[in-house]
């Protein structure tokens, strides 16, 4: 389950990310950034419903990933770990995409790092 989904178009600012919570992100088909808090729905391998629930119409998106706060760090970091939306790209292409996504986060007021 994903709660508190934030959908950003130009000029919108994100709510502050809260330490201890899990977040995921996706870029929807229109190129807009979406962020949501990921909530566990049970026990087991598939504890979360993940990225398809972050985007409308049963989950069509260009790319997605997680937002994590590493141990001993004050800066949240994004990655592209979404099995549904992040496959079939070379390392170079992934690095370019994540750098562009980082810019979208900055425009939404979130200064995140990138984990390639």
């Amino acid at each position: 389950m994903v709660e508190g989904i934030q959908h950003f178009t130009t000029g919108w600012k994100a709510k502050k990310l809260v330490k201890g919570k899990k977040y995921i992100w996706a870029i929807d088909e229109s190129g807009n950034l979406r962020i949501g808090e990921e909530i566990s729905v049970g026990v087991g391998r598939r504890q979360r419903l993940g990225h398809p629930t972050l985007v409308p119409d049963d989950g069509l998106a260009r790319v997605g990933g997680e937002i994590k706060l590493p141990d001993k760090s004050n800066q949240w970091r994004i990655n592209d770990e979404s099995g549904r939306f992040s496959t079939s790209r070379s390392k170079e292409e992934r690095a370019n995409i994540l750098t562009n996504v980082q810019t979208l986060f900055k425009e939404a007021g979130l200064d995140v790092g990138v984990r390639f």
């Binding site: 598939r46 099995g83 549904r84």
Partner: peptide
């Protein structure tokens, strides 16, 4: 299933 394939891919990562 799609979930199995996705989890295997995530495990690979």
């Amino acid at each position: 299933s799609n979930e199995d394939l996705e989890d295997a891919w995530r495990l690979g990562r």
